[in-house]
């Protein structure tokens, strides 16, 4: 007699996890994108307004080429061993595009929000 319930349980948990991930990682309600290197914001761009362009960022002699096209942003090329960041495609969720070897992060910014109010 084969038991089917363990598979159903695992399946349910998996589905829940996927739903949770989708919820957490959905695209934030902003068009502001930051290009950050070692904690420093190098560029802040409004994707809704910015024109198509190529941005090059250097780290330790290696170049990352970032492309903005049709109000979207992605890593076009990277002079790094693994090219994971290139493979991540267009930025479309709260999950940032990260180039670990070159300490570079492209992410949606929620920093228009205020940290505190005086008065």
């Amino acid at each position: 007699m084969r038991k089917i319930w363990p598979f159903m349980l695992v399946g349910a948990v998996l589905l829940l996890g996927i739903a949770g991930s989708a919820l957490v990682l959905q695209r934030p309600d902003t068009n502001i994108v930051e290009i950050v290197q070692d904690g420093n914001v190098l560029h802040r761009l409004n994707l809704a307004e910015t024109e198509d362009q190529i941005i090059e960022v250097e780290y330790d002699g290696r170049i990352n080429t970032i492309e903005i096209s049709d109000h979207r942003i992605h890593m076009l090329e990277a002079e790094c061993p693994d090219k994971t960041c290139v493979g991540m495609g267009w930025l479309d969720s709260a999950a940032p595009i990260v180039c670990l070897p070159n300490h570079l992060v492209i992410q949606f910014s929620d920093s228009d929000a205020l940290d505190a109010a005086a008065g």
Binding site: V41, S111, A113, L114, D115, A116, A117, A118
Partner: peptide, 26 residues
Amino acid sequence: AIISLGGNIQAVGSRPDGSDWRIGIR
């Protein structure tokens, strides 16, 4: 850190990402 004592704001350092804290002036 950022602390607000009823609208008296005190910022310790910067935001964790290194950028400035943004304080609304009422």
